[in-house]
């Protein structure tokens, strides 16, 4: 990212980019694939294009959907102690709060660990599928991408997986806990989600949405 050149201070406004974190102005220059443009003042990554990223993100999105489907419907954890068994699915963990006056928390947990991650994948696919196919953006693609970005901090599948690990350790000396396929699918899902996020260059997507409108 280059600083504005003082010799030619007058630039068209759409050649500029303002760092969302510190407001520093830069002249936008597309870096080579695999390189990143960072803010000269605060170091925030501004542009990080990857060749063929739309296709990869869509493939990973499909993977996430399949894994999430399995994670929700396959057995998650089973507790065995003294001949007794107790099973829990991923949704059962949210339902743990359903009784009494904590019902809103049950809804919140279901949202944070399953529904918001699924919604984000759907929104991202809706935005990127036409772009990957070289078509015009879908209707309301900008609104869809905005919502997906707003929901990003509220998608907590990875925190849930670490929470499972902590719960397992807590139970380890009291009972035997069997990890079901859903647990491993959830763990894989977290890795795939992190990969998907790494491929996503927000600036490139916004610019594509603007150019094609």
């Amino acid at each position: 990212m280059s600083a504005p050149d003082p010799a030619t201070p007058r630039l068209a406004i759409d050649e500029l980019i303002a760092c969302p974190r510190c407001d520093a102005l830069h002249r936008a220059e597309l870096p080579h694939a695999g390189e990143r443009a960072i803010c000269r003042r605060c170091g925030t990554v501004l542009i990080a294009p990857r060749a063929g990223s739309y296709g990869r993100i869509l493939m990973l999105a499909t993977t996430i959907m399949i894994l999430m489907f399995g994670a929700v419907f396959f057995p998650f954890l089973q507790l065995r102690v003294a001949g007794l068994r107790s099973d829990a699915s991923v949704f059962d963990t949210a339902r743990a709060f359903a009784g009494g006056n904590m019902a809103p928390l049950a809804v919140a947990v279901a949202l944070l660990i399953v529904l918001i991650p699924v919604l984000r994948v759907l929104l991202i696919s809706y935005v990127l599928a036409p772009l990957a196919a070289g078509r015009r953006p879908a209707r309301h693609a900008a609104a869809a991408f905005r919502l997906s970005e707003d929901l990003r901090p509220w998608s907590m599948a990875e925190i849930f997986v670490i929470g499972t690990a902590v719960a397992l350790v807590k139970l380890a000396d009291l009972a035997q806990v069997v990890l079901g396929p859903a647990f491993w699918m959830f763990a894989a899902l977290v890795v795939v989600t992190v990969l998907q996020d790494g491929f996503m260059c927000r600036w490139s997507i916004w610019r594509a949405l603007e150019a094609e409108r």
Binding site: L77, L79, S86, A88, D92, T93, A94, R95, A96, F97, L105, V109, L112, I113, M156, I159, F160, I162, G163, T164, V166, A167, K170, L171, V177
Partner: peptide
């Protein structure tokens, strides 16, 4: 939020 999830997992299991 990890603590809330731990409580959810323990209580459901």
């Amino acid at each position: 939020m990890i603590d809330v999830f731990v409580v959810a997992i323990l209580s459901s299991l």
